[in-house]
């Protein structure tokens, strides 16, 4: 699919937030009548399915690729009646989370529905992710050790 880089990175950004976000935030968003209505009319391209994905890493970002380990991933793909399609890959076995993440992905690509999803779901998810990152940084910062080299006065 031809997409410009901005659209692509924006989509990557919200797909990351949706994949990392907790299910209860997605569930409370899904209670909105508009979302419930859309859910009833979606077409599955690929039903939610759970499998293992090999995560590969590269030491220092430059080394050879190695297999870091397997993780459980649930994926699905769906289409809305207006033709927009949504895809989700989320960690874990929750089919419901994959479904809601894909639904949000599809709505975020629908110009009319986008702003409501950004306000109702993406903004809270981002606030939460930022808060978690801050807490993490603060905790790490608290354990920081400064090393000093003391002059030994031998000269």
């Amino acid at each position: 699919m031809l997409q410009n880089n901005d659209a692509l990175s924006a989509r990557q950004d919200w797909m990351r937030l949706l994949a990392c976000g907790p299910l209860d935030v997605l569930e409370s968003w899904a209670l909105a009548p508009a979302v419930v209505h859309t859910q009833a009319s979606l077409v599955w391209l690929r039903n939610p399915q759970t499998g293992l994905v090999m995560v590969r890493g590269r030491a220092g970002g430059t080394g050879d690729r190695f297999n870091l380990g397997e993780m459980t991933v649930t994926r699905c793909a769906l289409r809305l009646p207006d033709g927009a399609h949504g895809v989700a890959y989320v960690q874990g076995r929750s089919h419901r989370k994959a479904e809601l993440a894909a639904l949000a992905d599809a709505l975020l690509q629908t110009p009319g529905a986008r702003s409501a999803v950004v306000q109702g779901l993406i903004a809270p998810l981002r606030a939460r992710a930022d808060a978690e990152a801050r807490t993490q940084r603060r905790k790490a910062q608290a354990t920081r050790v400064e090393f000093f080299t003391l002059a030994r006065g031998e000269d």
Binding site: M1, L45, R46, H85
Partner: peptide, 17 residues
């Protein structure tokens, strides 16, 4: 590779297994 265009893809088996 380039993204697959999903807009023209129809559903597969409802129960693939």
């Amino acid at each position: 590779g380039a993204c697959l265009d999903l807009s023209a893809i129809g559903p597969g088996f409802s129960d693939p297994d």
